[in-house]
């Protein structure tokens, strides 16, 4: 994993505020969610294995399929949240939100605050347990119509939201964001 914001070419965009990481406990949240998703995958494999337990012409020996899925899922749940956490970085700068993320596909995004239509802070059940929030930034763009920064401590997320709101309200340019 490359260190966030170290390119010379990005000196201007990446200058100023240090790029911040997410809250470390987001890894646990991701792990829980991935484990849930993997279980859904694992159950059919287990079902197949059990129903073919006494079948004379089994495609695979007993336990290979479910075991394989289990091992793959465990590795995925253990490794992926870490990798994803390492790849995440963001910064709220005077005029923009800068963020980078993505394990397989590195994505670096700059959202000018001026272009933000509105901001939400949301929280699901698991995130509530960890007192984390998700900052959802809506723009009028097509691909990036909502940009999400997960895993922020809730007060931080709300503070960022309020700052963005204030930026928009204080914008002296009377024009629509579109």
């Amino acid at each position: 994993m490359e260190a966030p914001a170290s390119d010379a070419a990005l000196a201007d965009v990446a200058a100023g505020e240090p790029v911040r990481s997410l809250d470390p406990s987001i890894r646990t949240i991701w792990m829980i969610k991935m484990a849930g998703a993997s279980t859904i995958l694992f159950l059919p494999a287990l079902f197949y294995d059990l129903t073919h337990l006494f079948s004379p012409n089994a495609w695979l020996p007993f336990g290979v399929l479910s075991g394989g899925v289990l091992v793959a899922a465990t590795l995925y749940c253990l490794a992926w949240p870490r990798l994803r956490y390492q790849s995440w970085g963001f910064a709220l700068r005077p005029e923009e939100i800068y963020m980078e993320h993505g394990v397989l596909k590195h994505v670096r995004t700059v959202v000018p605050l001026r272009r933000i239509q509105h901001v939400d802070v949301s929280q699901d059940l698991i995130e509530r347990e960890f007192a984390l929030g998700r900052l959802v930034v809506h723009t009028a763009g097509s691909r990036s119509s909502d940009v999400v920064i997960p895993g922020l401590p809730l007060p931080d997320a709300e503070e960022i939201r309020d700052k963005i709101k204030r930026f928009i309200l204080e914008d002296p340019l009377i024009e629509e964001p579109v």
Binding site: L104, K105, V107, R108, R115, G141, S144, V147
Partner: peptide, 14 residues
């Protein structure tokens, strides 16, 4: 009319 800026690199592109 610029809106949001993206630079992406997939694993093969990297």
């Amino acid at each position: 009319k610029f809106h949001v800026f993206h630079a992406t690199a997939s694993i093969f592109q990297r």
